[in-house]
Design a protein around this nucleic acid. Sequence first.
DNA 1: TAGTGGTCTAGACCACTTT
DNA 2: AAGTGGTCTAGACCACTAT
Lengths: 235, 235
Amino acid sequence: MNKFKQIFHDLKLKIQNKEYENGTYLPSENELAKQYQTSRETIRKALNLLLEHGYIQKIRGKGSIVISPKQFNFPVSGLTSYQELVASQHLTSQTTVLSNNLIKTIDTIKKHSELTSPNGLRYIKRQRWLDGSPVIIDHDYFHPDIIPEIPNEVAEQSIYEYLENSLGLAISYATKTITVEAATQDDVTYLGHQDYVVVVRSDVYLEDTQLFQYTESRHTIDKFKFVDFARRRHN
Amino acid sequence: MNKFKQIFHDLKLKIQNKEYENGTYLPSENELAKQYQTSRETIRKALNLLLEHGYIQKIRGKGSIVISPKQFNFPVSGLTSYQELVASQHLTSQTTVLSNNLIKTIDTIKKHSELTSPNGLRYIKRQRWLDGSPVIIDHDYFHPDIIPEIPNEVAEQSIYEYLENSLGLAISYATKTITVEAATQDDVTYLGHQDYVVVVRSDVYLEDTQLFQYTESRHTIDKFKFVDFARRRHN
DNA sequence: TAGTGGTCTAGACCACTTT
DNA sequence: AAGTGGTCTAGACCACTAT
């Protein structure tokens, strides 16, 4: 692994383990460069990762101060899969696969996504359970030239893990929207009676900028919570 | 201004003006270093900003490809004020100040925020109008030692502009949550009949890590849309 | 004045893609 | 083999904070 990522991980662990306590300063960049036997610019790359992830705040002329005591409960922020969320939050979860088949491109997708294909799309519909209640309906549409098929056992576990590790795909970025909409008949069927649902729509791209997936994730409003850490941009 | 920010702005403009078209490659980093008479590392800092903002995608061995045709409609993402949003989206908007006074810390804040002060808090309540309809109720709480008072004329315009330019405060980062909750009687009074509202809660911090503001922003669900650009983290 | 983080440089080596 | 982006270095100068 890269040196600056190693240092980032090491410092992150030390912060989480309270070796560097909240409100105190890290050693200076020059000091860290000595400690890790590296150059200052490399230290700065590691500190930038800590900064972006909300672990430290840098103050010019003073130093880098630890600011992150809190665990984020439910970070839909960033590009994280449902399975990774569940794992990081130690939740007990179940997934029921409702559909897994090839479909023709349907008009409802076109309203929200650029994803199309002459050969149709692979469609997977899943119901997510938390603590015995259904809380999310996921509709996933994949480009069939990139993802020919997805076994049901994979759909019940982590599709992203399968795509990245088994198929070797490099998932890179996504554009997403969050809105609140009236529940459809289908939502009610699989989530129980709801007036409204939170809808998270994502177009997901590979490293080579190919659009390969569109996802519509429909949440019950009572279990939905989006948590974010944001920095003010001064550009 | 810094060289790398200048270059970032310049490239961003050229992308927006289609001088570098969507799907095409930027000149290589070495080429750009020559063009801008600078070092490659400085070019790379500028390109990193483009990357974070979703303007380009870098592909190893190939180059940096332009990926951003779309304008983001309503980026609540990042740390942007309502006024800046309105300006960037060319919306016509009005603000009504409903309250602007000093209050004792109330328990409802403590549930959601760390913000406290022995001298009470400055409280501002505002109603936001878009195209003739009330769409947001903002409840802002400020630490009075940092922000002694805010004129009503300022509250009707941009408080952030006032804090940053007139008071010289450096707003740095925030933690925020988004949930959907049952509308209160107060919401109905100022937003019209609603069953539910989208609630955005933020703790806002200064550069020196002082918590100085807690905001509760209550949106009508029909006008709420959160748009985000997210990169997958491989740490 | 000394220490801190912010910027910038010129060069090096590497992994990857293309020809 | 040549070109690309990814990493790393050793040093420089600056703006800011503290004493």
